[in-house]
Computed example of a mutant assay.
Amino acid sequence: MSQNKKYTPYSILELASVGVDSSIHQTFENSLDLAQKAEEMGYQRFWLAEHHNMLSIASSATSVLIGYIAGGTKKIRVGSGGIMLPNHSPLIVSEQFGTLGSLYPNRIDLGLGRAPGTDQVTAHAIRSDRMQAVYKFPEEISQIQQYFSAENKRAQVRATVAEGVDVPIYVLGSSTNSAHVAAEKGLPYAFASHFAPTQLFEALNIYYNKFQPSKYLEKPYTIGCINVIAADTDEEAEDISTTLIRMMYGVMTNNMDYMQPPIKMTEELRELAANPAFQRMLKYAFIGSKETVREQTSKFLKETGVNEVMVASHIYNHEDRLKSYRIFSEIMKDLKHK
């Protein structure tokens, strides 16, 4: 599946993680600062997630945050990673992203997923009939495409602000189901291997083998997501990763809390990180020095053949996070010349 190419675009998936002693306002300001710095570092796009009822994640009103980030940057593409479509009306999504696409031409992406982005009780509070919408995911994507088409001006129901606006749609997935949808519709496909790597290769194979060219995309385009914590040394990165380990432990034990500051790595945390359940979820968490992360990233790109890599990070200190993304941008520029 390896692809020989000289340049792999690299992007950011932002969850707007909230630290234990930080405000929501400060979290959003940090997100904007990261996007501005990422633009300077050569990142291709800056996507914002959709999660609900989680103390540690402030990326809930995704389209609002996209407008905030796009308004504070100049050229980096900004989008959703993603809009969890069963939570929303296709018409409203079209109106929101049509508006964004008009305000920031040729800079807005619409990534669509079908997971709830939260627990089932909260998902029911968001939209009580969402399970019906889950099964209609392919049809609702088609609805959005129709609302964005110039031809829809003759329809009884219109999203007038979206008609003819160029906002590319990406299908998001963490299992094989969405791979079929993306392939059949001829749309680009982003896989959440940063937290659900188990079916990555099976999903990519389905997508490549079943891909049908469309007016949106002539040949397959894939994005693989990874976690990265890069620092000057392996030991420093390992200590910074204690924040991620404790956060993932909270997810697995249903005991979510604010993002905690890093501590010196302990044997207990090291054993926790080595737990098979952790290893399954964080198979593609690349933690270490520039050399270590470069080796892991290069291997990931060769094994998967993805067209683009998207990076997520749960790093407590903003300066540490900026440094990690700066190191990663240097890695990708180094790999470009190899």
Rank of each mutant, 00 (worst) to 15 (best):
262 P>M: 10
294 R>S: 12
221 Y>S: 00
289 S>R: 09
214 S>L: 02
252 M>C: 02
270 R>T: 09
267 E>C: 10
272 L>Y: 02
227 N>W: 03
279 Q>F: 04
284 Y>D: 10
242 T>S: 00
245 I>Q: 00
256 M>C: 09
216 Y>G: 05
212 Q>M: 13
258 Y>N: 06
222 T>C: 04
214 S>E: 04
285 A>M: 13
263 I>W: 06
247 M>L: 15
297 T>L: 15
292 T>N: 06
289 S>K: 08
234 D>P: 14
217 L>S: 08
269 L>T: 12
233 T>K: 13
266 T>K: 03
281 M>F: 13
296 Q>N: 05
289 S>W: 07
282 L>A: 06
275 N>P: 02
259 M>V: 15
283 K>Y: 03
242 T>Q: 00
229 I>Q: 02
233 T>M: 05
244 L>W: 08
215 K>Q: 09
260 Q>E: 02
274 A>K: 15
227 N>H: 13
222 T>V: 05
264 K>Y: 02
295 E>M: 11
272 L>Q: 14
210 K>C: 06
246 R>P: 07
271 E>W: 07
216 Y>P: 07
268 E>M: 11
257 D>G: 10
216 Y>T: 08
215 K>L: 10
232 D>Y: 09
277 A>K: 11
210 K>F: 05
211 F>Q: 06
255 N>A: 11
231 A>E: 14
213 P>S: 01
248 M>V: 04
266 T>N: 08
253 T>N: 12
259 M>S: 14
298 S>F: 07
293 V>Y: 05
259 M>Q: 11
246 R>T: 09
264 K>E: 04
271 E>A: 11
297 T>W: 10
295 E>R: 14
282 L>I: 08
259 M>L: 15
234 D>S: 13
226 I>F: 07
289 S>Q: 03
236 E>K: 15
296 Q>L: 05
254 N>A: 13
275 N>L: 01
268 E>G: 03
259 M>K: 13
277 A>E: 14
265 M>S: 07
289 S>G: 01
227 N>M: 06
293 V>E: 05
217 L>Y: 09
236 E>R: 15
271 E>D: 10
250 G>S: 06
271 E>T: 01
293 V>R: 06
242 T>E: 00
212 Q>W: 09
219 K>R: 15
240 I>E: 12
268 E>H: 10
270 R>E: 11
286 F>C: 08
248 M>A: 01
234 D>K: 14
288 G>H: 03
253 T>L: 00
263 I>P: 04
263 I>M: 14
284 Y>M: 12
215 K>D: 13
266 T>V: 10
250 G>K: 00
251 V>L: 14
256 M>S: 13
223 I>N: 04
238 E>F: 12
283 K>P: 00
222 T>D: 02
232 D>V: 13
280 R>M: 01
255 N>D: 12
248 M>E: 04
264 K>N: 02
234 D>H: 12
212 Q>E: 14
245 I>R: 08
213 P>R: 03
274 A>L: 14
241 S>K: 10
282 L>Y: 04
253 T>V: 06
241 S>D: 14
261 P>H: 09
286 F>M: 13
223 I>T: 07
249 Y>R: 12
239 D>V: 11
297 T>H: 11
279 Q>D: 05
231 A>P: 15
255 N>I: 01
264 K>Q: 11
242 T>V: 04
225 C>N: 06
280 R>C: 06
252 M>D: 03
213 P>T: 01
274 A>N: 15
